[in-house]
Amino acid sequence: MSHLDALERTSIHILREAYANFKSLCMLWSIGKDSTVLLWLARKAFFGHVPFPLVHIDTSFKIPEMVEYRDRLTREWRLTMIVGRNEEALKAKRSFPDGTLERIACCRALKTDALTATLAGRGRMIYNHETGRYEPERDPVPFTGVIAGIRADEEGSRSKERYFSPRGPASEWRVGDQPPEFWEQFKTEFAPGTHVRIHPLLDWSEINIWEYIAREKIPTVSLYYNQGNGMRYRSLGCWPCTFPISSMSRTPGEIVEELRSGALSRIAERSGRAQDKDDDGGLETLRREGYM
């Protein structure tokens, strides 16, 4: 069995365990390459279906192509799509682009707080396939199982995650006190008010993700590819804090080459993500508070 096959098989196993064990389950979809691979794996796991809602936390500062791509796939694959925003902060203009918050505090307000509220069932908008519009979700139920596409090799704090990592009532993560996980038995029991984050891509590397996108021909947002101006995004986020890199890669295959032996082989993946640099350890702090 090839390495990619082994990774795929473990991820599918985890997705099926999540679906069997969590009645109120959702999958976070950031529109990025990782969570799009995850979405593809879900369709494999469930034989062409995605039997739980996808959740996108929209900071309102996402690059426009990302939102277009999200809604196109939602229609084409008949996805149950839920969008959550921190409307309060956006109305009050509390954000980094508005000049009222530092980057990390902006992540906290527009991502962590929005995510916590959305998971708890507040302020959810759901895509109506009849009208093609987002409308408030009727009778939202808190999610107790949350699938996320994080990888251990992305940055330090993520490597401490389990496949099934418990979160406390306020989404907090007690990183030093996690139960063991072995023999493909996971944490599927949880106290009322808590939830479990599920990480099927934990063992994948950035190269694996691109090899898999190339192999499976997974549709990904065009921002990842050089469109002729010698620039592309390596990691996607909000436009004020995410910057393209110089790269000639036009296809997933070329990206794999570039990562393996080319200019990017010694540069961190999230080097174009400004919030990582603002505060040493800031991401771990955010993760402990419930950040993706």
């Binding site: 992305e154 940055e155 330090g156 704090s157 490597s159 961190a268 990582d276 040493d280 991401l283 771990e284």
Partner: peptide, 17 residues
Amino acid sequence: LRDERSQGITIESARIH
């Protein structure tokens, strides 16, 4: 290495490559 979170090329805190 553990302190160098932003370096992040191959080093993680709980897994080492």
